[in-house]
């Protein structure tokens, strides 16, 4: 539903450009997909109550942004976006290791990973 709605919004100003393009999926398709994945990840971060699933959704958002960077790099004809995504993937691997270690330490301390029970700063 969301996809058809947004794509109908999306294709209306693009119709002129699409007819002049060769039979190829353009950059806007990739950017729309990236925005959609980012919104899904954002939704999950706000909605879910398990720390691990929230972290999964954060990874999804990060990966969606790399898709936009790769698409920009491809359609711009330069290598720099690819190099940038290379660094992002490297840093994301380190970040996941540290974040999961923190979650493991949190679980060892509090014996839960549910966000509604982790209210130490609230009181």
């Amino acid at each position: 539903m969301i996809f058809s709605l947004s794509s109908s919004i999306f294709h209306f100003p693009l119709a002129l450009a699409v007819t002049s393009l060769p039979a190829e999926v353009g950059i806007n398709h990739y950017l729309l997909l990236s925005a959609l994945l980012f919104a899904i990840g954002f939704f999950g971060v706000l909605l879910r109550r398990n720390t691990l699933v929230v972290y999964l959704c954060l990874e999804l958002m990060l990966s969606a942004s790399t898709l936009a960077a790769v698409a920009f790099s491809r359609f711009n004809g330069t290598m720099d976006g690819n190099i940038f995504v290379f660094f992002i993937i490297t840093v994301a691997a380190a970040e996941v290791a540290v974040g999961l270690a923190i979650i493991v330490a949190l679980f060892r301390l509090r014996h839960t990973v549910q966000l509604e029970e982790l209210t130490a700063l609230k009181h």
């Binding site: 969301i2 947004s6 919004i9 999306f10 209306f12 100003p13 693009l14 806007n28 950017l31 729309l32 925005a35 959609l36 980012f38 919104a39 899904i40 954002f42 939704f43 706000l46």
Partner: peptide, 14 residues
């Protein structure tokens, strides 16, 4: 919020 984010992105893209 997610839908607003998506709509904003798509509109700015368009």
């Amino acid at each position: 919020l997610a839908l607003a984010l998506l709509i904003t992105g798509v509109l700015s893209l368009a």
